[in-house]
Simulated assay, not measured.
Amino acid sequence: MEFLDQRLSQLKPYVPGEQPQTKDFIKLNTNESAFPPAATVVEAAASAAESLQLYPDPTLGNLTGALSSYLGVTESEIFLGNGSDEILAFCFQALMGKGVAFPDITYGFYSVFAKLYGIPAKVIPLQADLSIDLKVYADFSGTIILANPNAPTSLGLPAAAILQLVQEKPERLVIVDEAYVEFGGESLVPYVKDYANLLVVGTFSKAWQLAGGRLGYAVGQVNLIEVLQRVKFSFNPYSVNAMTAACGLAAVQALPYHEACLKETVNVRAWTTEALRDLGFEVLPSQTNFLFVKGPVSGSLLYPALKNRKILVRWFDQPRIKDYLRISIGTLREMEILVTTLKEILTEPQ
C-alpha cells in the first residue's frame, strides 16, 4: 500500500456477489437472468469473434439504431457503455459538480463512486418501511441519483412522483438507474424528451440475459449524452467490445424471447412470494427479478445455512437490513428447491 494515493486510503470497494467456480450451487445471489441468451445472440457472438483482430466500431451505430427504435428515442439520445456501472462512473465523474444525494440503502456503487471521485454526498435514510421519501430530496441543489426500482429493497416509485422532483428544479439533474425496470417498474425514458435535467440509465445484465457481456445504456437529451461521450472518448473509445455489441443487437432483435423470459420471471416471482409467505416470511412487494425478504430467523443465520446446502443468496451486513435476504428469481425448479430447503432449515432446532 506504500504507493497508494492517500486520498484513496479509506476507500471501501464495492463487494460483488459470490461467483462460485463450480456448477453445484443454485445461484440466487447476483440477480442474473435465470435463462441463457437467445440462440441468435450466441450465434452473433460467435460470428463477431471471427473478426476480433479488428477494433470494434466506436460509434456502435447498429446497436444504437436498434435500441433507439426499441426505446422510442432518437439515436442522439442514446449512450452505450461497458455495463451500466461504467456509465454510472462517468456520471459521477462529470455530472456531480454540486454534490450528489442518494438513499442510505441502495446500490452500493453510489457511495463507492462518491468517495472514489471525491464528491460530497448527502446520504438520505429510507423510511421505516424501506421506501424512498422524495420530499426529503426537494431542497437539495446537487445531482440526485435514484435506483428505481430500488435495490436491494425491490420497491419502485411511480414515474409521476419522480417527474415532480424533476420539475421542481430544472437546474438540478436527476439520474434514474433503471436496472430492473422491465420486471414491473415504470420507466422514465418516455419523458426524457421533455426534460433536459433527466437522465435514465439501463442495463442488459438483467432482463436481456447479458450480465457476462457487460453492456449498459443511458438515455437523455443531446447535451447530457455529449457529456458522457466526451468522458468515454477521453477514457476508452472501445469500452464496448465487438462481441458484446453484436450480442446486444441480436438481443434487441429477439424480442419474443425477451418477453417470454420476462413473463416467466414474473410468474415464478409470484409463486415464490406466496410460498415464502406461507413459511412465515415477510416479502416486500417486488418490481424486480429478486425478492427482499425477512424470515422467522435472521438473514445472518439463514444465509450461511443456505450456503452450506449449496444455495447462494445475498445478505448485507448493514444494521437496518441485517435480518433480510435478497433472493434472485431463478427457474421454477430452483425456487422450489429453495423453498423446500428453507422449510427444512426452519424446522431444525436452532
Rank of each mutant, 00 (worst) to 15 (best):
M1I: 06
R7E: 13
S9R: 12
S9G: 04
P13Q: 11
G17E: 00
I26S: 02
N29S: 09
E32W: 08
F35H: 10
T40Y: 01
T40R: 11
T40E: 15
V42C: 11
E43H: 06
S47A: 15
S51P: 02
L54K: 14
Y55D: 14
T59M: 10
L63G: 02
G65K: 09
L67K: 04
Y70G: 03
T74N: 12
S76D: 15
E77G: 06
G81P: 05
A94Q: 14
A94H: 06
L95H: 06
G99K: 03
A101M: 08
T106Q: 00
Y107C: 09
G108S: 12
S111A: 13
V112P: 03
F113D: 01
K115F: 01
A121I: 05
I124V: 15
P125Y: 01
Q127C: 07
D129H: 05
S131R: 13
L134W: 05
D139Q: 11
D139F: 01
I145Q: 08
P152W: 03
S154T: 15
A159T: 06
L163D: 09
V166F: 06
Y180A: 10
E182S: 11
F183G: 03
S187M: 07
A196L: 11
V201K: 01
F204K: 01
S205P: 03
K206N: 14
G212F: 10
A218S: 07
K232M: 09
F235E: 13
P237V: 06
S239K: 02
V240N: 03
L249R: 09
A250E: 09
L255P: 01
P256H: 09
H258L: 14
A275M: 09
L276T: 03
E282H: 08
T288R: 00
L291E: 02
F292H: 07
V293C: 04
P296A: 10
S298K: 03
R309I: 05
R309K: 14
I311F: 02
L312S: 03
F316P: 00
I321H: 00
L325W: 00
R333K: 13
T341D: 08
E344T: 11
E344F: 02
E344H: 06
